[in-house]
């Protein structure tokens, strides 16, 4: 039997899915053991038990000076920035995508401009944002918006253009105006695409968030990581990295579930 036709059973599939995680963990444990055996005070690869204790402390014990549990405050702050930035970008992306996808005049005027603007590296604009909007919340949110909006606009306008012409013509013969076609035919069909596009752009959004927080902030996940870097506190950094990964994964999973839930016609069509 050819290898491309051999499929793993459910047990083997689960095992294979867990295998890479286990391998990475084992490799880390071995490397950490070797280093700690040579130097018990090594800070670079702390033992998993150390990381676990640190994580417990970070999640439960309040900061001595401020009396707050910093990790939760960092998380809340970062998620607020991320959520705000992504929500604004998604709204702009959806609106502009519909306009560009449906109206030839808009396409003629904006498509080229967006194509050029999307090539500007957003991080290169960060200093400008700090100068213009100050070091507060605004510049961080704006960085996320600037970073992912061009992608969202391009992706969504493409999805609108991909709606079969037959459907648009059909709507016209049923007497629909341009606005009705936009709201009742195009919008509902690109909403699932919007969720897909947002899921794809969450990676860059996190990148911009952490970059902005690392440079100028006094609270936030990215800020904390870069702060404790000074003390070589690998246990704290690794805890935060795992926590961020977990958050990103949960958000992605939730969006996928939301899409299936909100757009049953999509799932049945695939």
């Amino acid at each position: 039997m050819r290898l491309i036709n051999r499929k793993p059973g459910p047990v083997l599939a689960t095992f294979l899915a867990l295998l890479p995680f286990a391998l990475v963990l084992v490799a880390y444990v071995i490397a950490s053991d070797i280093r700690l055996a040579a130097n018990p005070a090594d800070k670079l690869l702390p033992a998993p038990s150390t990381i676990f204790e640190t994580a417990q402390r970070l999640f439960t014990e309040p900061d001595k000076r401020s009396g707050r549990i910093l990790l939760w405050h960092d998380t809340a702050m970062s998620l607020q920035r991320l959520g705000l930035g992504v929500a604004i970008a998604a709204t702009i992306g959806l609106g502009a995508g519909l306009l560009i996808g449906l109206f030839p005049h808009m396409r003629a005027g904006l498509a080229g401009f967006i194509a050029v603007v999307s090539m500007v590296p957003p991080l290169a604009l960060l200093p400008i944002l700090f100068i213009v909007f100050g070091l507060g919340e605004l510049s961080k949110v704006v960085l996320i918006v600037i970073g992912i909006t061009p992608f969202l606009i391009r992706d969504l306008s493409q999805r609108v253009i991909e709606i079969p012409r037959e459907q648009i013509v059909k709507a016209e013969t049923l007497g629909a105006s341009s606005a009705v076609i936009a709201l009742r035919v195009a919008l509902p069909q690109v909403l699932p695409r919007l969720i897909q596009a947002v899921r794809l752009s969450l990676g860059p959004a996190w990148l911009f968030l952490i970059a902005a927080e690392a440079i100028a902030s006094d609270l936030g996940l990215g800020y904390r990581i870069f702060l404790v870097r000074r003390y070589l506190a690998m246990d704290v950094i690794l805890t935060y990295v795992i926590w961020i990964t977990f958050l990103a994964f949960v958000i992605d999973w939730a969006l996928r579930k939301l899409s299936v839930r909100l757009f049953p016609w999509m799932e049945e069509g695939l």
């Binding site: 079969p164 459907q167 059909k170 709507a171 013969t173 035919v185 069909q189 757009f263």
Partner: peptide, 13 residues
């Protein structure tokens, strides 16, 4: 005018 195409004539959503 009413129209029916070979495909894509109904709204999938």
């Amino acid at each position: 005018r009413g129209v029916v195409f070979q495909r894509y004539s109904v709204f999938p959503h």
